[in-house]
């Protein structure tokens, strides 16, 4: 069987922040009634995490679980485990109006690291990224220039971005351009 490769094969760029394509990552989309106890029970038993509230992401040792919309969650696992996790969840959700689909190969993900990482994203997305408005534990689906993406902060000095695989090069170029040396604008402004 052919070797799986990520969209940009781990491309990276060094600027005032470092931009790296994360490489292969397992992603399982879960849809169902997020308020239903039966649905929550299946998700919590599989992941060991509590179903996150509106626009929140929760992190475990190896998996993360993100709120994507009122009826959708995104489960981040290792690439190797994605297919089996999706199959197991689909099986457990069999009797509910819900689904679990392995979407790992449809996505690309990036990491932006550096103390000024907020401004790299603030240049591209119509989102308030001041620390009071957005921080660790929050996730935001938005647009990055012309394409859809989701962003969150694993810690105070980095962002992770997911987008569709078909626009991986576009998003990488955007992020690199925004993170280029000499392009710093001093966001957020100290008050």
């Amino acid at each position: 069987m052919s070797e799986p490769v990520s969209a940009l094969n781990g491309a990276s760029f060094g600027g005032y922040c470092d931009v790296t394509e994360i490489g292969l990552r397992g992603m399982v989309t879960l849809r169902g009634d997020l308020s239903a106890a039966a649905f929550k029970k299946v998700i919590e038993a599989e992941t060991g995490l509590t179903v996150p509230g509106q626009r929140k992401i929760v992190h475990g040792k190896v998996v993360s679980l993100a709120w994507m919309s009122p009826d959708e969650l995104l489960l981040l696992v290792s690439y190797r485990d994605a297919a089996a996790t999706a199959a197991r969840l689909a099986d457990s959700l069999n009797h509910q109006h819900a689904m679990a689909v392995d979407v790992s190969d449809a996505r690309a993900s990036f990491r932006i690291e550096g103390s000024a990482c907020r401004e790299v994203l603030a240049k591209l997305a119509p989102v308030d990224l001041y620390p009071e408005a957005f921080g660790h534990g929050d996730i935001r689906r938005t647009r990055l220039a012309q394409v859809a993406g989701a962003i969150w902060m694993p810690d105070e000095a980095s962002f992770e971005v997911v987008c569709f695989r078909s626009v991986a090069r576009y998003v990488f170029d955007l992020l690199s351009e925004a993170a280029r040396h000499g392009g710093q604008v001093g966001y957020p402004v100290e008050t």
Binding site: M68, S69, P70, E72, R141, T142, R143, A148
Partner: peptide, 8 residues
Amino acid sequence: RHANGCGK
């Protein structure tokens, strides 16, 4: 429609 967001 919140097209570039929750999609709803």
